[in-house]
Design a protein around this nucleic acid. Structure first.
Lengths: 154, 154
DNA sequence: TATTGAGTTGGAGTGCACTCCAAGCAAGCG
DNA sequence: CGCTTGCTTGGAGTGCACTCCAACTCAATA
């Protein structure tokens, strides 16, 4: 059994960054399995990200194996953050394209991120308003439980 | 062209509750299209919810058409809230089952909601930490823009 | 030298949450 | 009566984001 192709969705949802896997110092060429260990993504997903243009052209060894740089890891950290906030992959690909196109796309990148930030803020407000409903419901059940314990003690 | 089967995903994401469609007073039997107007869900989705057991048995006319009650609308509001917070449909179906089973499931319902509340709190924290990254990135681009405007004024 | 293990590819498959389709029925209107 | 509108059904299709498969190469070890 190989060690890669692991990392179920649930796990990734929690870590999705540097989590007990600090970046080895003084190194700048990581194999795919090292990146898997670092990011919590699967090797499949990393290859898929590259295929769809979400990676800034990953370097290869003379035998064709991928070698990721610290810059790639930084990029994957950002992508992970954007993913966590629910940015669609298509939008992240668009952002990656802008990065590849150079500095004259700064304004558009800023706009893309600003729009997304607004979405995230709305999402937070939404979640917070739902927390109130949840609190209320939970209180109702807790009250009922306490009442039944009073009449019908263990 | 019929007016139903509308409500694109984006729109639902935003409203998903009473949004300019207050519940008609003194009424307690709503057709599916009225519920569509009220909830922002599509008729497809309402029927699908019923099929998978996410609705508490909807009443019918003598010709078999659905008639939703205010209680159903309340339930759909709650479901909408839970959906917005990312609760999987399977979990909501489980909750619906517990509700159908009666008051002896209060404890389990409370537990289900409490667990979910914890997830929502984590999600909010996650989003907030990402907001910081977003703010930082946006600042970088804004600084670059201001600098270029200084050297290269319009 | 043979085997093992980590890596490669294109393309197919999966799971979720809808989303739509075709065919049909009932009521109201001209 | 015929047409339109609103609704019904089971089952098939869609889009997203992966996720996996089969067949292969290469490098290192037993």
């Amino acid at each position: 059994m190989t060690v890669m192709e692991s990392a179920p969705v649930k796990a990734r949802k929690n870590c999705a960054g540097r989590s007990g896997h600090p970046r080895p110092t003084g190194q700048d060429r990581y194999s795919i399995s090292e990146v898997v260990a670092h990011t919590g993504l699967t090797a499949h997903t990393l290859r898929w990200y590259e295929r769809i243009g979400l990676m800034p052209h990953v370097d290869r060894t003379h035998t064709g194996q991928r070698r990721f740089t610290n810059r790639d890891l930084d990029w994957l950290d950002l992508v992970g953050k954007l993913r966590l906030t629910g940015m669609p992959v298509a939008d992240m690909v668009r952002y990656a394209e802008l990065v590849r196109e150079g500095e004259h796309t700064f304004a558009e990148r800023e706009e893309l991120l600003t729009t997304h930030r607004e979405n995230v803020r709305e999402r937070i407000a939404e979640l917070q308003s739902t927390l109130e409903v949840l609190d209320f419901k939970i209180d109702v059940y807790a009250d009922a439980r306490r009442a039944s314990e009073r009449f019908d003690p263990v």
